[in-house]
Amino acid sequence: MKKKERTEQGLSLSSVITASICPLKLYYGYSPDERALWRHAVCRQVSSHLEHDPVGDTVWEEIQSIYPGIAPEFREYLDHCIAACAALPRGREWSESDVPVRSERLNVFGNIDKMFSSPPFFAVTRSSHAPRAGIYATDRLRVAGYAMCLEEMEGREVTSGIVEYIPDGIVRTCMLQPIDRRRFLAALGSARRVAAGETPSRSRNAPCDRCGHRERCAPRGKRLSDLLG
Rank of each mutant, 00 (worst) to 15 (best):
F122C: 10
L88P: 01
Y27A: 00
A196D: 14
M148L: 15
K114M: 15
S20A: 14
P23A: 08
R214H: 08
Y165C: 07
T199D: 09
G197V: 15
D53S: 13
C149V: 05
E152M: 02
W60S: 07
V163A: 03
E198N: 07
S97N: 11
T58G: 09
C81E: 03
R92H: 10
P167A: 04
L188H: 07
G212S: 08
Y165K: 02
V46F: 00
G69Y: 10
A19C: 09
V46S: 00
W94N: 03
M115I: 06
Q45H: 13
E198T: 11
P54C: 04
G69I: 08
P119K: 14
L227Q: 13
I162N: 00
G155E: 05
E5I: 15
E61W: 06
E5Y: 08
R214C: 04
L150E: 06
S160F: 05
A206I: 03
C43K: 00
P23H: 07
E198C: 08
D168M: 08
D53V: 08
S117D: 14
E215C: 01
A147T: 05
A130N: 05
E73L: 12
C85F: 04
E96N: 08
A83L: 12
P131W: 13
R192G: 04
I162W: 06
R142Q: 15
N205L: 15
E93K: 15
R181W: 13
Y30W: 13
D180C: 06
S225D: 13
G161E: 01
E152Q: 03
F74Q: 01
D57H: 07
R204N: 13
R172W: 05
C149P: 04
P89L: 08
V171G: 04
A84Y: 01
E164F: 01
S225F: 09
P100L: 09
Y77N: 02
K2N: 13
A218N: 05
A133T: 15
M153R: 06
F122Q: 08
E215K: 14
D113C: 04
P119A: 15
V46E: 00
G91D: 01
F116K: 08
M1P: 03
R210K: 10
G221A: 08
D168Q: 03
A19L: 10
I82G: 00
L13P: 09
P54G: 00
R210Y: 11
R220I: 13
G189H: 10
E73N: 11
L13Y: 06
S20E: 06
R90G: 03
C174Y: 04
V171W: 04
D98K: 11
S160P: 06
P68G: 09
G69H: 13
P200F: 11
F121G: 05
R35I: 12
L227W: 14
E62Y: 11
P32R: 10
D168R: 02
C208N: 03
S12A: 14
G169F: 12
S95F: 01
P219C: 07
A123V: 03
A206Y: 04
K25R: 13
G145N: 04
G197W: 09
G134A: 07
L78M: 05
K3V: 12
V143D: 02
I112K: 05
D139I: 00
I135A: 04
L188Y: 05
E5Q: 14
M148W: 03
V163I: 14
S201G: 12
K114I: 10
V46C: 01
P219A: 03
S128A: 14
G29I: 12
S160C: 13
A186F: 11
R140L: 11
D98C: 01
A87R: 14
V16C: 11
R202A: 08
